[in-house]
Design a protein around this nucleic acid. Sequence first.
DNA 1: ATGGCGAGAGGATCTCGA
Length: 263
Amino acid sequence: MQIATWNVNSVRTRITHICDWLQANPEVDILCLQETKVIDADFPRSPFTEIGYQTYIYGQKSYNGVALISRSPLEDVQTGFASVLGDILDPSLDEQKRLITCKFGDVQIVNMYVPNGSEVGSEKYAYKLRWLNLLREYLQTLLAKNAHVLICGDFNVAIADLDIYDPKGRENKVMSTDIEREALAEVLNLGFKDVFRKFTSDAGYYSWWDYRTAGFQRNRGWRIDYHFVTEALYDRATSCAIDIAPRKLIQPSDHTPVIVTID
DNA sequence: ATGGCGAGAGGATCTCGA
C-alpha cells in the first residue's frame, strides 16, 4: 500500500495541483490532506469523485481541516479526539478540526494537523503542547485496539537538527524547541518510528519551505511532515520519499507530499 | 532585529500560518 501526506494550504486553491498529482501517482491508495480551510458543505468533492476517489472530510471555516482522499471506500472513519476517547476533559482541543482516522487493510491510519504554536510562550504554544499530550492518550487507545498504526501529517515539529536547513537558534524558535520535541517524543515513544530515516540519514531533505525569502529556491526548508509507524510496519516499509515536484509549480502550497510504501 | 509571502474573510486591511 501507498499512503501520502500533504499540507495543501487550502484545498480549493490547490484543487488542480492535487488532482494532477493523484493522476500522476496512481499507486497512492490514500492521500491525507491538511489545511483544507473549508467547511464540509463547501468541500470540492466532485473533482475527486470524477477521477475515481472517495472523500472523507473534517473541515471548518478558514483554518485547519483534514481529509482522506481514497481510491477505495474506507471503513471506520472517525474524526476528532472524542470519537476515540469519549468525553475529553478539555473540549477546546476538539474545536479545531485536525484529526481523522480510518482502517485500511490491517493498518489504522491517522491523519493529523498538529497546531503550529505561533510563538514560544504564547497561548497557542500552550495549546499545541496540550494537544500533543492528548494525542498521546488518543494513540494509546488506538494502539490497544490495533496491531498496526500509521500516523502521518503536518506535525509542526522538526524532530532533529538534521531536519532544519539552519538549526542555529532553533532552541527559541517554534517548531524546534526542546519542549515541543519532548512532547512529540513522548507520543512517538508509544512505539512509533520515522519511516523516512529508514532510507536516508542525509541532511537536506525538507517538506516545507517558507514562501518568503525564496526558501525553496535556496532549499532553506524544514522537515515537519512525517509518516511514523509501529515496528512491524517499519520493517514492511519499502520506500519513503518526499516529492518536491508540486512545490515547483506556479502558486504552490508551501508544503510538498511525502509518500510511504508498505508491503 | 525586522520583514519578506500567501490564503481567507470581506470588501480595507486584518489574522493566521510556519
